[in-house]
């Protein structure tokens, strides 16, 4: 199915947030995830389904002022 990941359309096989994090090679990384603008706690990644057309944000720390 196609979802938007960080603003870009992407064909994915994942059906949960945990799957998607793994599929995008962020497993074990220091990332946070929002699904359709709402934060998905790390503990809930495995039980949070992803559906066609969802918008996912995956963020990490960066330099800031």
């Amino acid at each position: 199915m196609v979802v938007r990941v960080n603003g870009e359309p992407r064909e994915i096989a994942a059906v949960t947030v945990a799957d998607l994090v793994r599929e995008l090679d962020h497993e074990g990384g220091f990332v946070a995830v929002a699904l359709n603008t709402r934060v998905v706690r790390r503990a809930a990644w495995g039980e949070t389904p992803i559906r066609e057309g969802d918008a996912v944000e995956i963020v990490t720390p960066r330099q800031g002022g």
Binding site: V5, G7, D25, H26, G29, V59, T60, P61, R62
Partner: peptide, 13 residues
């Protein structure tokens, strides 16, 4: 610090 989008497979963060 800030937070920004991470590219697939990216490790900058």
């Amino acid at each position: 610090v800030s937070l920004r989008r991470e590219a697939a497979g990216g490790a900058a963060g």
